[in-house]
Design a binder for these strands. Structure first.
Lengths: 341, 341
DNA sequence: CTGAAAGCGCTTACAG
DNA sequence: CTGAAAGCGCTTACAG
């Protein structure tokens, strides 16, 4: 392994000063075109690469974005929520396009994640991805904002939340899927998924759902909603509670596909058929949802677009351009699990 | 946003020299315990974080690993092969455990990826993930090795390949699944998936498959193998070729689950039933495989373990400890798509 | 146990 | 258009 070349080595070979080498490699028009090309050629020959640590240190900028995936402590030890996983591709690509590197890390919600990446100058800004307890989360966001950290998060739009967010219209999604179910002639409904303020995405989906039912006079007094975080297990367990009740609703609306998968699993162990006896719908359109039996009717959030927006918005913030929240429309995906007319 | 504190600020407040601050923050036993604690407390109060660029530059080490995902140019623009995606979780976690940061990037196989990350001191080593044309790939690996770059790749064990690899026994996996199918009474077989040397993983699976057939005298003269890269589309298209043939085999063995998914899709458009008329098996045990209709019999490669091994092996290599190839056993997962006795 | 000093490899005013 | 010099914020011999 040869010693790594430095800009001084190149300067020596080219017979110019190191300053000129640095300028030439950064394509500065200040440097004579011919010497610039000569220097660049030498750099190529030597397989020279600018030392990022040195250049970042000097420029006080890293051209790196940190992606923090935080999770509920309950989720599996090495699995990432498939919904967030599906954003990773476009985030990575958007970063590459913009000339940023991407640092990925998990973050336990309980951890002390004071924007370590930005504070240590390893990253210029942070993307936050994850469903977690919003109450705890909020405090940390406020802290980040106070420190002047650049960050963008995926999540619910909220008038007074700290920082900027990119999200999908959860209220509209919940309403649309419910309207569709009502149009299909279903009359009795149940909802599985957390619907408190600590899970604002799910809560918004639930509100949309509830309002659609109300509008059609279908929100009966004994309507049931079961709490569940976004895992298959939680969906399975909530289903047991629901199955212990006297009568099954026409439809089980789930706050996420993962929950719906758990519901389907629970129903498979009963004599009830989906969608004949009971319809089931999910939310997120994770890859597996199309392959479930029956294929899940769900609500798609455009993850490709989301990833791009997350990155471009963060970069704007880093460059001190004005940024604002963005709410993407949700898109109903009708498959078999909701039944048909 | 307050100015970021430096070690000099802390030194000033603590009334010691900056060297002492640096030592104290690195927990050096050289520093008096009491002053050490006092300095650490001040650092905490100031929300001070060591500047990574400066410390990396000085130490000539970044404590960062770069993960390069390279792909066939044909694959979708923002999707990552789900098999590799499933390693990401354990890789991320293993890095965190070892105190390394993780840089993630895509790499087009055609690109000029001369270990830029390590050369520029942004990373101490590289993990390579992807199925690609091995012929082109090999040359680049040799180049990396020559440059003294630390890298570990996921892939086929190969006596004379450059660098170190962590992989799963593809030959054994191909053989085991085929033996199982033979035990089920199936007599005629076809294989879908590339089986040339430019795709060594698939080739090894094919060899195991072929040897199992030979052993039982079932490798007939007109045995058919259809090329396909690892995508659903390729599997679908290869199926069309197969369906145009005179007679359908008892089993279609696919070199990957993605291919098998395409095969199932193609068969769904015919009157043939799986597994009654034709059995189908995949390879990889990607999340979707369990949800396919019928659920895919497949071969599992332990991705959690793989991710951990990739990281720990690379770190050993970075620390100049001896490392060697590791071949994990493959594990047959029997589900419905292979039929039963 | 502590401090003064050198230096990691760049970028960028400043001067010419 | 080019060079000499300062300095980004650390770590770590070296000296005491």
């Amino acid at each position: 392994m040869k010693e790594k070349a430095t800009s001084f080595d190149i300067a020596h070979i080219a017979g110019v000063s190191q300053s000129t080498v640095s300028r030439a490699l950064n394509n500065s028009p200040l440097v004579n075109l011919e010497t610039r090309q000569r220097i660049q050629q030498i750099a190529r020959d030597l397989n020279y690469k600018v030392d990022k640590n040195a250049s970042n240190l000097r420029k006080q900028k890293s051209n790196t974005i940190a992606l923090l995936l935080f999770e509920d402590p309950t989720s599996d030890d090495s699995m990432i929520n498939p919904f967030f996983l599906s954003m990773l591709g476009s985030i990575t690509r958007a970063c590459a396009t913009a000339g940023y590197d991407l640092l990925v890390s998990f973050q336990n919600l309980d951890d002390d994640w004071h924007a370590e990446f930005e504070d240590s100058n390893k990253a210029d800004g942070i993307i936050l991805l994850g469903y977690g307890d919003y109450t705890a989360y909020r405090t940390k966001l406020a802290q980040l904002e106070e420190q002047g950290t650049h960050f963008v998060r995926w999540g619910a739009h909220d008038e007074n939340h700290p920082g900027v967010s990119i999200g999908c219209d959860n209220y509209q999604g919940g309403r649309d899927v419910t309207e569709h179910l009502i149009g299909l002639g279903h009359k009795t409904f149940a909802f599985i998924g957390d619907a408190q303020s600590h899970a604002p995405e799910f809560q918004a989906r639930f509100m949309g759902y509830q309002d659609a039912l109300k509008k059609h006079g279908l929100l009966c007094a004994n309507h049931r909603q079961f709490n569940a975080i976004s895992t298959e297990d939680a969906g399975y367990e909530a289903s047991q509670l629901l199955l212990n009740e006297d009568n099954l609703p026409d439809v089980i609306v789930c706050a996420s596909d993962l929950i719906a998968l758990g519901v389907l699993k629970a129903l498979r162990q009963t004599s009830f058929r989906v969608p004949e006896d009971v319809a089931v719908v999910g939310y997120d359109n994770i890859p597996v949802s199309a392959f479930a039996t029956p294929a899940l009717t769900t609500v798609r959030q455009n993850t490709k677009r989301a990833g791009e927006l997350l990155v471009t918005t963060l970069i704007k913030a880093i460059n001190k351009e004005p940024v604002e929240d963005y709410l993407m429309p949700a898109e109903l995906i009708v498959r078999q699990s909701c039944g048909s007319k």
